[in-house]
Design a protein around this nucleic acid. Structure first.
Length: 684
DNA sequence: GTAGGGTTAG
């Protein structure tokens, strides 16, 4: 039966009842309930208004009807006006308050009132579980514990409703052990599926996948669609995306039909895996399944958009976004991130500008997008726009600070970085560990390793990213020993080194030329930490051998790299050949260099320079000729300084500016400062 | 004879 047919049927039903000579109060109450259930609040009100007699059921029905239609103020008016009130009236109102944003205080007030005077509305299991849900929503375990005590005292702690509410409250407010006790303290034989699902979700929240699956599997006959969705989501949230997909297929095989929650989680796992074929399969499935469509739920359309964005298929993403998700913030932020990851920053900005209402998620996506595209000036410009917003709804959050600090680091401009740091300190806003890492990185990249270290030492909460940032800072500033010490400290403090840690530590090795140490770290990467070296790690090792004039080993190592060599690796090797005047080995890789790196002019120039440095003009000429044939060109790398509002850039060997006396003296000063390596210690 | 409560997605 379609919705309109249903509504017609309801209305004629209502008409029949009302046209009867004496519709009973009971019949009218039923009608109010029916209308409300189908979203026909106006019809429900009409019945209520026209009733000559009403009883407590009537008042409860109309109050609930208004709560259901999200009109809390109207239900409040009726609650106050009601001549009869019982515990159902109170509990309905309590539910309304507890579920709505901004009415939490009223919920507490009403609950307190129930404790005191009314003898017709005592606190019961309904009220207690509702308050438990509120404590869960507010993540307030202290209040939750008080409720729990009261529940035990009044014998209201053992039903399925009570157990699920307690498990959920404890888990969401970060007390897994209490959730465990609440679940295991009840009689296991009578555990119902909702409590079980709540506890499985609690285990996943705690990261205990093993326990979650044990509970899920135990008494599997209880499992329902929510149970399956819980384990699928749980795996996806714990980074086990492949398992999440497998479980979803398993759910199919067990005869459970995917619902909106299932699709949302599977889409989420699919976008993490960046698997386009699976994405297309899911898309087809959504189009085919009659109970679901892209329009039925914003989670589904934005999830689908996100999958296509992560897979780089912006055409498909755009078609779904423009049709179903143009006002959805999650869909929009996926689009912004998707376009930025392809360096299409103006398309990203178009999506951003098309939104009338911008949430912090969208702002943060645009900030990161600009940073990703190296558009530092746009990062600052966007911050300016953010500050000019009339509404104070969006305040800069950690992700905004990270983007701004990232832009400062990228441009090596310390002053705006210091201003942001100062702002954070002055306003005493709470910052998370990511912002602290960004501050460390900013100071390090702007040349002030002392400040970076000071912030690192003072950070109360550290994570492995923060260690990596600090370690890279040490490596770049030539404090190799400190980098090695920090590596040990990181391990001692219980953090596991990851791929980025090894980039930092191998960089430290190559800068200090400690081949043996580098080899040991590289070995430990696979043998001890079970990590797979990536192209950058191999590049570090080749550079390490190359700088130490162990070109034969470099060559040998290069031949053993299990992935295809890239231009960076070959370029690194060529630099070493030039440094140690080894033309023979340069010759050996020449063909490969030009095959892989031929598209950009960089490698041609590099190769030509190797020959030129040894006055091998014929070889150099040969390469230059090929270069012209390929229309290759090389953009010169440069350094720059900010003086006032001007940026002065310098390329290697450019002496045209040295006529400027003040510039010369600044340069001398800088050289002096660089030579005086400052003493720093990492242990306080 | 009516009405109020729990679990899974940003």
């Amino acid at each position: 039966m379609t919705t309109s047919l249903l509504i017609d049927a309801l209305k004629s039903h209502g008409h029949a009842i009302k046209s009867g000579h004496n519709p009973t109060v009971f019949a009218c109450n039923q009608l109010i309930h029916l209308y409300s259930k189908h979203g026909l609040i106006k019809d429900a009100c009409k019945v209520f208004d026209e009733m000559p007699d009403r009883n407590v059921f009537t008042w409860n029905a109309i109050i609930s009807a208004h709560i259901k239609s999200n009109n809390l103020d109207q239900s409040e008016l009726l609650f106050d006006a009601a001549p009869h009130r019982d515990s159902v009236t109170y509990n309905s109102m309590l539910s309304g308050y507890a579920n709505s944003e901004g009415y939490e205080t009223k919920a507490f007030g009403l609950f307190k009132q129930m404790h005191s005077v009314r003898h017709d509305a005592r606190v019961d299991e309904f009220s207690l579980t509702r308050m438990c849900n509120l404590a869960a929503k507010l993540r307030n375990s202290l209040y939750g514990k008080q409720l729990h005590s009261f529940m035990v005292k009044t014998g209201n702690d053992l039903s399925g409703f009570a157990v699920s509410a307690l498990v959920d409250m404890y888990s969401k407010s970060g007390c897994f052990n209490e959730a465990y006790n609440a679940f295991n303290g009840c009689n296991h034989g009578s555990v119902d599926v909702v409590s079980k699902n709540a506890f499985v979700a609690a285990c996943f929240r705690e990261g205990n996948v093993e326990m979650a699956m044990e509970v899920f599997t135990n008494r599997g006959e209880l499992n329902d669609v929510v149970s399956w969705n819980t384990v699928i989501t749980g795996h996806a949230q714990n980074g086990l995306d492949k398992n999440a997909i497998e479980l979803a297929r398993c759910m199919d095989e067990n005869g459970f039909i995917w619902n909106e929650h299932t699709f949302t989680s599977v889409l989420n796992a699919c976008s993490s895996l960046k698997c386009l074929s699976l994405g297309k399969e899911l898309h087809a499935r959504i189009l085919k399944q009659t109970t679901i469509n892209l329009n039925s739920n914003p989670f589904i359309s934005s999830g689908m958009v996100d999958v296509y964005c992560k897979c780089g298929n912006m055409k498909y993403a755009e078609s779904i976004h423009s049709r179903y998700g143009s006002n959805n913030m999650f869909s929009a932020s996926s689009m912004i991130t998707g376009y930025s990851s392809q360096q299409k920053v103006s398309q990203a900005r178009n999506i951003f500008d098309s939104l009338t209402l911008k949430t912090p998620v969208v702002w943060s996506a645009m900030f990161s997008g600009y940073l990703n595209c190296n558009c530092c000036e746009n990062v600052f410009e966007l911050f300016h726009i953010l500050n000019q917003q009339q509404t104070s709804v969006v305040v800069p959050d950690d992700s905004v600070w990270c983007s701004l600090l990232g832009a400062c680091g990228m441009q090596a401009v310390i002053d705006p970085g210091k201003q942001i740091h100062g702002y954070i300190l002055r306003t005493r806003i709470q910052t998370n560990v990511k912002t602290v890492s960004s501050l460390i990185d900013m100071y390090s990249k702007c040349g002030n390793i002392q400040y970076a270290l000071r912030i690192f030492k003072r950070a109360e909460v550290k994570d492995s990213v923060m260690y990596n940032v600090m370690m890279s800072g040490f490596a770049h500033h030539g404090y190799e020993q400190q980098a090695f010490d920090l590596f040990d400290e990181m391990v001692k403090d219980g953090f596991t080194p990851d791929e980025v840690t090894f980039i930092a530590i191998l960089s430290a090795c190559r800068h200090s030329g400690v081949v043996k140490t580098g080899e040991e770290y590289f070995r430990s990467m696979t043998e001890r930490y079970n990590l797979t070296p990536e192209i950058d790690h191999y590049a570090c090792m080749i550079d390490l051998y190359g700088r130490a004039n162990e070109l034969k080993q470099a060559m040998e190592f290069m031949r053993k790299v299990p992935i295809e060599l890239d231009v960076v690796i070959l370029g690194t090797f060529l630099s070493a050949c030039k440094l140690h005047s080894n033309l023979e080995l340069a010759h050996e890789v020449e063909e490969e260099v030009l095959r892989i790196g031929g598209e950009s002019g960089t490698r041609y120039v590099q190769l030509a320079n190797v020959y030129a440095s040894e006055a091998r003009w014929d070889d150099m000429g040969r390469i230059r000729k090929q270069m012209r044939g390929n229309e290759a060109g090389k953009t010169a790398g440069c350094s720059w300084v900010h003086v006032g509002s001007k940026v002065h850039s310098f390329t290697s060997g450019d002496s045209s500016r040295f006529e400027n006396e003040s510039l010369c003296s600044v340069l001398q000063f800088l050289i002096m400062e660089m030579n005086e390596k400052q003493e720093i210690q990492i242990c306080s």
